[in-house]
Write a protein that binds this DNA or RNA. Sequence first.
DNA 1: TTCGTTACGGTTGAA
DNA 2: AGTTCAACCGTAACG
Length: 371
Amino acid sequence: MFYQTYGEVNQLGGVFVNGRPLPNAIRLRIVELAQLGIRPCDISRQLRVSHGCVSKILARYNETGSILPGAIGGSKPRVTTPTVVKYIREYKQGDPGIFAWEIRDRLLGDAVCDKYNVPSVSSISRILRNKIGNLSHSGHYEASKQLPSQHTLPYNPIYQYSYPNHMSSAAAKMGSATGVPVPGVTGHMGIHRTWPSAHSVSNILGLRSIVEQAAAYGGSEVSAYQTKMEDWSNVNRAAFSSAQSVNGIEKQAIDPDLKYPQPPSALSAASSFVPACAVGPYPSSNQVPGYGVYSGPGAGYVTGHPWQSQGSSLSHSGPGIGMHGGDIHAPMPFKHLAAREVADRKPGNPANKPSESHSNPHGLSIPASST
DNA sequence: TTCGTTACGGTTGAA
DNA sequence: AGTTCAACCGTAACG
C-alpha cells in the first residue's frame, strides 16, 4: 500500500505513472517553457517527458487553454434524462402515432436537446418501448403525474453533466465553488468532461490565467504529490466536483493529479526555472506526505532531477534555445510564435525582443529577469 | 532532428 | 460487491 512502487521510468529517465496524468506541476512547466519559446523537444528532454506527451499537452493547451488532463473514467452522461423522457412522453401522448425520428426532430426543434445530446432514434424507440410504451395504454395521467416533481429544466444543450447536489456542495465545501480553488485544499484541475467534445473551447480568451490554474492545482499539486495512494481515489473523487471552471470556461475541473505525490521541491525547481511560476513554495500541504512515485526514488524526478541542472543550462545558454521568451500576447499563438520563431531565434536576435516581464496570453506573468 | 500521430497497456469511474 | 464499458492517461515507436 505504502510502497513507493508507483511509477515507471521512461526512456528519458522521467518517472511516470502509467495510466495516470502527469502532475499538474509538470504540465504547467511544459506550457510555461513552451511559452518561453523553448522547443517541445527541449522541453521533453528537460522535463523528461516523452515528446508525444509534450506535444499532446501543448496541443491541448492551444486548443482549450487548459493544461489540465481530461476527465478520466466515468460514463458519458445519459442523454435520456428524465426531462428528455418527459418530453418524449409528452410528444407521444400528443401524437401516439409519432415516429421516433419525429420525436427526435421535435426535441431539437423545441430546444430540449441539441444535436449533441439528442437521443438517437433507437434510443427514443427504446424509451418509447420501455418507459413510455406502457403509457400509451395506461393513459396520460400517469405521464402527467409521473414527473410532477421532476425538474423540467430544459436539457442543457451542451452536456452539462451537472453533478447533482454533491457537486455543488462539494465544491462549496472545498471553498472552490467560485472556481478558484483554495490552495491547500484541492485544486482539482481537469477538463471537465463535456461530451462530445471534452476539448471544445468556448471561451479561450476568457480563460483564467494559467497562473490561476497553476495556483489552483499548484496548491493541490504539491499536496497531491504527497498524497498517499490510498487517498488518491478518495481525494480524487471527492474533489472531482471542486474547482469548476478553473479556466473560466465551461470546463470543470477534476483532479487528476492528486495522485502524484510530488515534493514541493519539484515546484521550487520549476519555479527557479520560471520564477513567475505560480506554483511557488508550497505549504507542506494537507496531504499525507511521502508517498508515491514522485517522492521516493522519484524524488529525483523533481529534486535531483535535472530540472535544475539541466534547466540551468537550458535556461541560460541552452544551445539554440531562446530562453528570453518573446512577447506573447495572443492566447494561442505561443506555440507558433514563441515556440517556433522565438525558439529558433538566437538570443539577442532583435527580431525577438525580450521583455523583462512577460505577460503571457493568459496573464501568466513570466518575468524572464529573475531567472 | 523535430514533431504529429497512434498502438499499447494502463487507470478511472459511472452504470 | 464485482464487472463492464468507455473515457482518459503517457510512453514508445513510426513516419
